[in-house]
């Protein structure tokens, strides 16, 4: 009986998640009347704006990941090693982006960095891109910090650091050669979440008026019928592709097998 209930719950869960996707997928194939076709997908792929915005967001996501890793890994490492008492405060700060809406953050940016301010970042495209990257980094902070911190928990940070120091290594070497490789899987899962957030982010990109993928999806969704679900299916495919890639990388890292 319990077995039956367990199966029932599992099937219900699957249906709950998969049915809307199936419906969406099916709808996206119905552009041509009466038959299934990939017309909607072709339209999306033929649209140069799709490629431009997608590429733009991808580049920004990569930049965000780099900035995030450079910010979070040393911070989380230092907090674990030397400032364990500061951990609750740092965690609180990293959680703030979940509480403060993106629109508040972006209005703050515009007020602080507008063209008549001391640091007129919004005056140039590059400056705005930089601002957007920082904003994305902030949005991704809760996920990045948490996954890296969890990764650090699986290794003996203090002793490994001391071992490396006794062998003559400085801080940069310790971080780059010992700490980062050992939390790589955690960093990757944080990076994956960052990618997902950046690719779909609308508010910041729209208000800073940058040609990102989020505003493009919104624009398409407001004006077309069949292309948006096609776009959603594509987005899902990318997401799952990333997940698969992450699994693959995890498996390829030999020393990670020890934890499995």
């Amino acid at each position: 009986m319990t077995r039956f209930l367990a199966w029932l719950a599992l099937i219900f869960g699957c249906v709950f998640f998969i049915l809307p996707l199936v419906g969406m997928g099916e709808f996206s194939l119905k552009m041509r009347r009466g038959v299934y076709s990939f017309d909607a997908y072709r339209k999306v792929f033929e649209d140069p704006t799709f490629w431009a915005t997608f590429g733009y967001s991808l580049v920004l996501a990569a930049a965000t990941i780099v900035v995030g890793v450079l910010l979070v890994v040393p911070t989380a490492y230092w907090v674990r090693l030397r400032l364990p008492k500061a951990r609750p405060y740092v965690e609180f700060v990293t959680l703030l982006p979940l509480v403060i809406p993106a629109i508040v953050v972006v209005f703050g940016y515009i007020r602080l960095f507008n063209t008549s301010s001391i640091l007129p970042l919004t005056g140039t495209a590059f400056g705005t891109d930089f601002l957007l990257t920082m904003g994305y980094t902030t949005l991704a902070l809760p996920y990045m910090y948490r996954s890296v911190d969890t990764g650090l928990r699986t290794i003996d940070v203090a002793t490994l650091t001391e071992a490396a120091q006794s062998l003559g290594a400085g801080w940069l070497t310790i971080l780059a050669r010992i700490i980062l490789p050992n939390v790589m899987v955690a960093v990757l899962s944080g990076a994956f979440l960052t990618l997902a957030i950046v690719m779909g982010e609308f508010t910041m990109a729209a208000l800073l008026n940058r040609p990102a993928f989020g505003p493009y999806m919104q624009l398409l969704g407001a004006n077309r019928a069949y292309e948006p679900p096609a776009l959603a299916v594509i987005a899902f495919a990318i997401t799952w592709g990333c997940m698969g890639l992450m699994q693959l990388v995890t498996r390829l890292a030999k020393h990670e097998r020890a934890k499995a």
């Binding site: 290794i155 003996d156 002793t159 490994l160 001391e162 071992a163 490396a164 120091q165 006794s166 062998l167 003559g168 290594a169 400085g170 050669r177 010992i178 050992n182 020393h255 020890a258």
Partner: peptide
């Protein structure tokens, strides 16, 4: 790092 010493730890502390 500048002392040129070698150290062994109870917890081995090999780099995984």
């Amino acid at each position: 790092s500048a002392r040129n010493i070698g150290m062994m730890f109870q917890a081995y502390a090999l780099f995984p």
